[in-house]
Design a protein around this nucleic acid. Structure first.
Lengths: 344, 344
DNA sequence: TAGAACTATGTTAGCGCTAACATGGTAGCG
DNA sequence: CGCTACCATGTTAGCGCTAACATAGTTCTA
């Protein structure tokens, strides 16, 4: 009764749920009017609109967004691809994106590459298949195939985190400069025997960029720039291990420049357990400006990166494009800030 | 040439991209065969399948998943609704879900309620509109309207985090019992003057459940169970403030049971800055078992909750249902574990 | 007051894909 | 050898919605 008559003999997966047609019948209008009442209310008489909205409630209509997307060839999905969910940094960027997009009625499709470019390419394919309105991806490094897929795509593409030669839009910061900045700070504080501790820099290549900046400055000062590379991306435990390895490999080291705050804080807490005085016996510096590092004693010297802001700015720039406005800035440098703590 | 003839006079949003029909023509088969070659390869002759796959590459076909979902009335989307992205706890649950679902070809649709039940209801509506294959939501508390929407829905519904009277499936732990467990531990260690520090327990009602358990034990022992409630959910800074407030309001307090590890660790680090000895002058306990608390000195006494496991188990149970298997367990208790540290 | 301009609603034709049914060919069986 | 069974492929008819065009009524303009 409440359901459509099956067409003669052929059965069809009838989805039981009320459709726009049911709403239209209940309101005594055509389905296109019901559609307009919901999507472009200003194009419908107020009286009619009210009748339609009542009908929606009465029949318990939930719009089929898939059908709508197919018909209109656009989905209000924003694809977001990050290399990891285990890293607070990406979570905060996602948060900035999500807050901005969700309030404008866009839905985020989250993809996690686990630092695998092939996986990224596969995700991009899938997301293109969902007719996303835009795509945000962390970083500028992609596989060949991924690049091809993206360059044949006609919607906004936003690459966040670092700055460089982007496909389309780009919001990020200069990691090499950040590395230089911290290295300069350490030199200014009088340290000469400085070790960089990275972690999986083939995957976390932004840490590699910071290391490159670090090296430039140290070499410019005529100093060695020794490196210890850990096999865990960023954790307190790995940081503790890093401190041990530095002390073993470079007994004369007086300062450690860590690739991120997790490592640095882990080392700092470990130093306390060992009875090492920070920074007297060993100076420790990080990168990211996580709350964690700002609550330990001594407070961690680090570089604050505006992650949530980065997500927000990226989202706003995309929204401008989606609203048909001309691009204001294809590339935006969100900058960073040295947080001088007591650990150096 | 590469495009469809527009139908007489009527123009149509022609999406430029190659469609399955183009692939089929290039491979010299009908489009349903091309569809089968991609989706149910075992139902197509190997030779034909190869021709189709070559054609896919040749024309640069990207499947339109929206059209596919509409036709098949199912989308391989899993809706996941959490109250916050700022809280590591939910991120880890999401990670467990994502790892399990992504490997099976499902895409997560992430929604963030900001602890607002109306917002949750709106998200549920939207997600139902996307014909999700299943819905996962954090917690058992929902608005009336949300409950109605869910009960009229015919796909798996999974409620995670706490245990109780669920709509459908339920994976979580007993927060009241966790609260009792920690309270008992504190009593066993000899503490008698114990303050609970919560934060926004109207929103983080699971912390309220733990507080309830805490109260039961203390009252059972004939003790008072004073409460300090903070207005920030969980941060190191709020924990530090919490310690100050306890010392001011309850100078005789000898132990603090914090609602979570962020607060507890913040208090612990703050205690060190103040020169308070933990646990001699003040014992501190938390909840969650975050790595953070396990790397400070003294190591934090807390309760380990298996968050990623919770996500994984939830996903696996849903997948069983989606694979048509009979429900094994509608409700699963993932349990928890007291991590005795040196802070009590 | 004719006709342009605008408003409110309706009709038609798909969006790109797949479920359901149909068809022809090849084994398999007693 | 006529039968069923199965395999590989094709034809048809939508899934539920909205863009494009159409139509009738109303207001504005010169």
């Amino acid at each position: 009764m409440s359901n459509h008559e099956p067409s003669r003999t052929r059965r069809r997966r009838g989805s039981a749920h009320p459709t726009l047609k049911d709403v239209a019948e209940a309101a005594g209008v055509s389905s296109i009017t019901a559609s307009r009442a919901l999507n472009t209310p200003e194009r419908v008489n107020e009286e009619t609109r009210k009748r339609v909205l009542q009908a929606v409630d009465r029949v318990g209509y939930v719009p089929n967004l898939i059908a709508g997307s197919l018909a209109s060839a656009s989905s209000r999905f924003i694809a977001v691809i990050v290399p990891s969910l285990a890293n607070t940094v990406f979570i905060e960027v996602i948060k900035g994106l999500q807050d901005t997009f969700e309030s404008r009625g866009y839905q985020i499709l989250l993809g996690n590459t686990d630092y695998d470019l092939q996986r990224e390419q596969q995700l991009v394919r899938t997301f293109l298949g969902w007719s996303c309105s835009a795509l945000v991806t962390a970083g500028l490094r992609h596989s060949e195939g991924c690049r091809t897929l993206l360059s044949n795509w006609d919607k906004p593409i936003m690459e966040v985190m670092e700055l460089g030669k982007a496909q389309d839009l780009n919001v990020g910061l200069d990691h090499e400069e950040a590395g230089r900045c911290m290295a300069r700070h350490l030199l200014e504080r009088g340290y000469r025997s400085i070790v960089y501790v990275g972690a999986c820099m083939d995957r976390d290549y932004r840490a590699g960029m910071r290391f490159a900046g670090h090296c430039q400055v140290l070499e410019g000062a005529g100093l060695e720039a020794p490196l210890i590379e850990l096999d865990q991306l960023g954790s307190l435990a790995a940081g503790a291990a890093g401190l041990d390895r530095v002390r073993e490999a470079f007994p004369s080291a007086r300062a450690i420049h860590f690739a991120n705050d997790d490592l640095a804080t882990g080392a700092l807490l470990h130093a306390q357990r060992l009875g090492l005085r920070v920074p007297v016996d060993m100076a420790i510096a990080g990168f990211n400006g996580l709350p964690l590092g700002q609550h330990v004693t001594p407070r961690l010297t680090t570089i604050q990166s505006p992650r949530e802001t980065m997500g927000r700015l990226a989202a706003e720039e995309i929204l401008r494009r989606l609203d048909g406005k001309r691009v204001t800035r294809r590339q935006q440098d969100v900058g960073f800030q040295l947080l001088g703590g007591q650990s150096t």
